[in-house]
Simulated scan of single mutants.
Amino acid sequence: MNAADVARYLKENPDFLSDHGELFAELTVPHPHGGQAISLSERQLHALRDKIRLLEGKLAELIRFGEENDEIGGKVHRMSLELLAAEDYESLRSVLFESLRSDFSVPNVALRVWNSVLTRAGEDFSPVSESVRFFAGDLRHPYCGAPGNLEVLDWFGVVAPHVRSVALVPLRRDAQVFGLLALGSEEAERFYAEMGTLYLSRIGDLVAAALRRQLG
């Protein structure tokens, strides 16, 4: 009989150990964190403690994620209230940019709007190429990653050469994209392809709704 035969026998006869409980005290196995021998019951206790520590670590991680989400949710809520209170486009733009920079620590923000009923003077309404419009129109979720589009990169002005990652958030009127909110960072890992975009999408929805109210 080899080890595989013993393991198979125990699986096929689950009552064996309960019928021979004295084995737990008589048989010994190596300590999981040392060289000395311990009983099977002690080994089981160590295994349970290891599982408890693992579960405690996962619980702490879940609590941390929950607290982070609560904090982000609070910032998005505060932004939405300020956008609702904005009485004109200039106030709306100021609130948006200040919130993204102060609350969300995004150092570089740019906005482009097209196909709106009303327009304003300024860079936000500068002409946008057809390729950028097609790119924005094809987005189903915010784009996060390297700043591959040089035209969008230029929107950040003098800091453009230092931007290493971007988040591009489409702004929609029903199914049609009418603008793009661009966030830029000098850190290559700030916005990356695998990151979650739930809150970016919600911010895009809020900004789009506020812009439609001001611009039609």
Score class of each variant (00 low, 15 high):
Gly74Asp: 15
Leu59Val: 09
Pro147Leu: 14
Ala160Asn: 06
Lys11Ser: 06
Ser41Val: 11
Glu130Asp: 14
Leu153Val: 06
Gly35Thr: 13
Leu180Gln: 04
Leu83Cys: 08
Ser129Leu: 07
Ala85Glu: 15
Gln214Cys: 05
Gly74Asn: 11
Ser102Tyr: 01
Asp205Leu: 01
Ser185Gly: 05
Gly74Leu: 14
Leu211Cys: 03
Ser116Leu: 05
His20Ala: 04
Met1Trp: 13
Asp5Gln: 12
Leu54Arg: 00
Ser129Gln: 13
Val163Leu: 08
Arg140Cys: 12
His20Phe: 11
Gly73Val: 02
Ser129Met: 07
Asn115Ser: 14
Glu22Leu: 04
Lys75Arg: 15
Ser116Gly: 13
Gln36Asn: 09
Gly137His: 12
Gly122Ser: 07
Gly145Leu: 12
Pro107Tyr: 09
Asp154Arg: 06
Ser102Lys: 05
Arg53Asn: 14
His20Glu: 13
Leu17Tyr: 14
Gly157Trp: 12
Tyr199Trp: 13
Glu194Tyr: 01
Leu153Ser: 13
Ser80Arg: 04
Ile52Cys: 01
Leu153Thr: 09
Glu61Leu: 09
Glu123Ala: 10
Ile63Thr: 02
His20Tyr: 12
Gly57Trp: 02
Ala160Ser: 15
Tyr89Ala: 07
Leu10Ile: 10
Val132Phe: 07
Arg140Gln: 15
Phe178Ser: 11
Tyr192Phe: 15
Leu83Phe: 07
Gly74Ala: 10
Leu81Arg: 11
Phe16Met: 08
Leu96Gln: 11
Asp174Ser: 07
His141Arg: 11
Glu56Gly: 00
Phe156Val: 04
Lys11Gly: 01
Gly122Thr: 04
Gly196Ile: 02
Phe97Ala: 03
Gly184Ile: 08
Glu82Met: 10
Ala86Tyr: 09
Leu180Trp: 03
Asn69Leu: 15
Leu111Met: 08
Ala60Met: 12
Tyr199Lys: 00
Ala4His: 04
Ser80Cys: 08
Ala167Val: 11
Leu23Ser: 07
Ser99Arg: 02
Arg164Trp: 06
Glu87Leu: 01
Ala3Ile: 13
Asp205Ser: 06
Pro142Tyr: 13
Glu42Thr: 01
